[in-house]
Amino acid sequence: MTTTSGQTDSGRTGRAEDWRETNRAMWDERVPLHTGSAFYDLAGFRAGRNDLRGFEPDEVGDVTGKRLLHLQCHIGTDTLSWARKGADVTGLDFSGAAVEAARNLAAEVGEERARFVEADVYDAPAALRGETFDIVYTGFGALCWLPDLARWARTAASLIAPGGFLYLAEFHPVAMCLGEDGRAFAEDYFARGPLTYDEAGSYADMSAPTRHNRSVEWLHTMGDVVSAVSAAGLRLEFLHEYDFTLFEFLDDMVRGRDTSGSRGGGGTVYRLPEGRPRVPMVYSLRASKD
């Protein structure tokens, strides 16, 4: 996951090839912060908590016995949450530290239907040796780390078995452009990047001392996402938008419980105060492979 605070330079980075290693160093350093943080609350997860948002299981459907690939899985809490729903899961991430943490967590909770692979998302087909999956899942805060969305969509499509589908749940690009007061745009919706940031700490602990603070991100419009998925040969089934998000990133946001979906997620979400015009904060889409 990521927030949009801390931008220092919206120009191009020094060398295009630096972005991957820059981001990897940042994520590797933050893994121990995240595994020990109250934000991820791994003790609660070990005790049985499911970290999926309420609408996700409804939109994905029954995953019992399905092969599910989670791209950019980080420390694996969402991946293992799908395993707790009955899926045979594979998590993939470019951070070796994150993959190691995910493997340890799977062992601690006794989840034998989970495996974790260290690889860049663009290299996933080779790393997985041509294996395909019933469901390819990408969760919150993933797409902003990828410069080439069309390549991402082609990669995801190549990993889906016939009759399977891509499911994406992400932060909405409109919300990511709002200023802190939530009333006007502060960022250019069409400024795709690269955007460079230099910010200590982490969304899980903003006060944590860190050394690798530089990161490189990209913005992708809703049109970019839908067009990339369609161009990859996938058939869009739905695009849903929601008026809540997972972070208190705007002034005066109201904290509440996730009541989306037929069973509710039970986690914490944030909305704009009642009476304020609502904007889309997160979205989900599902696209199938015939």
Rank of each mutant, 00 (worst) to 15 (best):
R15Q: 06
V99D: 06
S260C: 12
R129V: 00
E118I: 04
T13S: 04
Y137N: 02
D205M: 04
G163I: 06
A142Y: 01
G233S: 14
S207F: 04
R271P: 00
T196S: 15
E21H: 06
A150M: 00
H70N: 04
V279C: 11
A87M: 10
R113S: 13
G86A: 02
V63Q: 12
P173R: 10
G264R: 12
V174C: 14
R46K: 13
M26I: 05
Y189T: 12
E29W: 05
R53D: 14
R115G: 14
Y167H: 14
A98W: 04
I160Q: 04
T268L: 06
R12E: 00
D188H: 09
V269T: 01
R263L: 15
R113A: 11
G163A: 04
T196C: 15
E170N: 06
K85V: 01
V279K: 09
G182C: 14
E111R: 08
A47D: 15
D243Y: 07
V216H: 05
R113D: 11
V136P: 02
S262W: 09
E180T: 15
D58H: 09
P280D: 12
D258T: 13
T77W: 13
P173W: 06
G44Q: 07
T268Y: 02
Y122V: 09
A101E: 07
A142S: 13
V136Q: 07
I75D: 14
L69S: 08
S284A: 15
L69D: 07
L80A: 08
T77F: 07
E29K: 08
A200N: 06
E100W: 01
A186S: 15
V89M: 08
V109A: 06
G265T: 11
F165G: 02
C177G: 10
E100R: 14
R263W: 10
A107S: 12
S10Y: 00
R84N: 05
E118T: 07
N104R: 15
R24F: 11
R271N: 02
A191Q: 01
R214K: 08
N50E: 13
Y122E: 06
T13E: 03
R15E: 03
S227Y: 07
F94G: 14
A287Y: 07
E241G: 11
Q72Y: 01
L68E: 04
L33W: 02
V121N: 10
A153R: 05
A156F: 04
D51G: 15
T77A: 10
A161D: 01
L105K: 03
G14K: 00
G275K: 03
Q72W: 02
A127Q: 01
Y189G: 14
A83G: 09
V60F: 11
P173H: 09
R15P: 00
R151Y: 01
Y283V: 10
G201K: 12
A169R: 11
Y283P: 12
W82F: 01
V136F: 00
D9V: 00
V60H: 07
H212D: 11
G130I: 00
R278A: 09
V89C: 12
